[in-house]
Design a protein around this nucleic acid. Structure first.
Lengths: 176, 176
DNA sequence: TTGTATGCAAATAATTTGCACCAAA
DNA sequence: TTTGGTGCAAATTATTTGCATACAA
């Protein structure tokens, strides 16, 4: 099976990266988006924006739902509404979405710097890194192919430093 | 909705790239894999290797099944067996797998050069390109982060040349 | 013969949809 | 008031699994 297709639930972690300069908070930007489309400011949307932009770096729908109030509790948001709202966030440019191991993973886009990921096939950690060189090279290659770039997604798979150094002895052999 | 998340069935196309030097055909290599694991050479496996390595560049399970014989016809292979066998191909290093729009997409790995993709958000074409510079940069960055690279996956999203040039007038405005 | 492989039907898992009711503007 | 939004239950889609049977070694 490919490295991108492990079946265990993955741990998702990340470095803290410096925030990008933005004139509005994600909340303000989302409100503007709603206004521009004639959509409504509801309790659920307000609550979800807050949650998503206070807690996470990467997450999938289930991880988000898990840390939301349960049915019956205050601020409960149903599963379909979570999915519908995540779509709106992507649409509004607040979140970016990609797929890993068959499920959708979301990460902050608005106010968050461009970055790529290392994916460790041992511990399944998804770790961010920044490199302007990648963007430069990407644009250069796209120019050569007359392709108009909108964005890109790069995941480097392999074994992270932790997993290849502090690995117990009897596993050393698998590490090359 | 993100570019990676269009819901229409995507067209998948590619450039012809030069084959990499290999000492065995995919079929031979698969047989060796089966042998090494004590698995059996069955009609279904033999037929699927042939199909996959004669027809496709990129495909998903449904596209493959569509061009296989139907139930009742000669060489019919059931859906579960197709999925099981695709997994074996990935395991054997014959195919690589990645996810696009929520489904698994497969491409030739064995005997096929390393490459990356452009994904056109207008026509949904997935087009291959080769660049050693990307691999170099990837390895350089990984070294800096002490990450042991096994492979990578890069998809550049945007608008392909065809879609941005021979586009009808009333669409010009969406092209940035 | 002996266990692996296959096909079938059913099960999963993630996500989406239809619809009646609710609420923001 | 009017139209969009929500929750619920059910539907969908892709993929996987249990199990009885078939077949390669």
């Amino acid at each position: 099976m490919s490295e991108l297709a492990v079946s265990e639930p993955e741990q998702i972690s990340s470095f803290a990266l410096e925030a990008v300069e933005v004139s509005q908070t994600p909340i303000e930007r989302f409100e503007e988006y709603l206004l521009s489309r004639g959509l409504r400011k509801t309790e659920q949307r307000r609550f979800l924006v807050e949650q998503v932009f206070s807690h996470h770096e990467h997450f999938d729908a289930d991880q988000l739902i898990d840390q939301l109030p349960r049915k019956g509790e205050e601020n409960y948001v149903s599963r379909p509404t979570v999915y519908r709202t995540l779509k709106e966030f992507v649409d509004a440019g607040l979140l970016r979405r990609f797929e890993l191991n068959g499920r959708s993973v979301y990460e902050h886009d608005y106010g968050y710097p461009e970055h790529d990921h290392f994916y460790c096939v041992k511990c399944h950690a998804l770790t961010e890194f920044q490199s302007e060189r990648i963007t430069q090279l990407r644009d250069e290659i796209a120019r050569e192919h007359r392709f108009r770039v909108r964005s890109h997604r790069l995941i480097i798979q392999g074994v992270c430093h932790d997993c290849s150094s502090r690995r117990n002895q009897r596993r050393r052999q698998d590490l090359v």
